[in-house]
Amino acid sequence: MQQADYQLIIVGGGPAGLTAGLYAARARLKALLLEKGATGGQVLITDWVDNYPAFPEGVNGFDLIDKMTAHVDRFDLEKKFSTVTSLDLAQDVKTLFLENGEQLTGQTVIICTGAKPRKIGVKGEEELRGKGVSYCATCDGPFYRNQEIAVVGGGNTAIQEAIHLTKFASKITVIHRRDELRATKILQEKAFAEKKIDFLWNAEVSEIVGGKTGVESLKIAHKDGTTSSLSVTGIFILIGIEPNNEILPLEQLETDDNGFIVTDTEMCTNLPGVYAAGDIRSKKSRQIINAAGEGATAELSAEYYLGHLE
């Protein structure tokens, strides 16, 4: 076997990467966790986590990540804060290219780059980002005290954050393209009972209209072919996610139609010694608990592979 800087390199420090890192550190692998910002990933933009076991009172997204990070630190996992710009994963020794020109090599790689909020793709969305267009209710909710705003989406994230926004906004219109929500029942019950939340069913935002001060209104296209306008100062777009796959060698890695990495149940990709875990994987359920579990599985697969190298 050729020499490599590390036995294992983990790309991405959300719950999947941190859990893989925890297992690797306890296995005493020469392992490195690479993260572009700070550990946490999308959990950082989650106000409240009520479905992660062992937190009977629920936990704030940031606090959960703080604990996960403290946990890997206890076992001295090596971490590096840098952005990976590209990877070559098709060789026995995998090479990662960093933004500062540095190159790192690993015998195995676990990809945990996660996902990011999906955009609607309408006029005004890009131009008014940060001026009324938001993808993070936890971050930006407090700027909308006593204002009328809209939430786009009907899944768990949209409904949970709409409920969270009732702490600040005077009125919240949830705009959903279907006539029923996908969100879990307990969230639906809370949202329907909330007086500040209104629903606009079978409707899509076709344009975000704003001036110098920011968002002023939304153009709405209804399923029956009619259009209308809704006066709001803010719009929170929570319509799902897209993969963080820009840095990945998509000509080497097998992905699904949406760009998420295909793996088997042991988190093995189509490339030997390369694994994927968490939201970047092609799968149906994207939960913090799955991401953590997949991180553990991926690391154990990497260990098994390392144990069988010539």
């Binding site: 910002g37 946490g40 950082l44 989650t46 940031f62 936890t138 971050c139 407090p142």
Partner: peptide
């Protein structure tokens, strides 16, 4: 930034 904002903390080291 604000103390309640996760992404704000995330870019702190940068």
């Amino acid at each position: 930034w604000a103390p309640w904002c996760g992404p704000c903390k995330a870019i702190g080291p940068v």
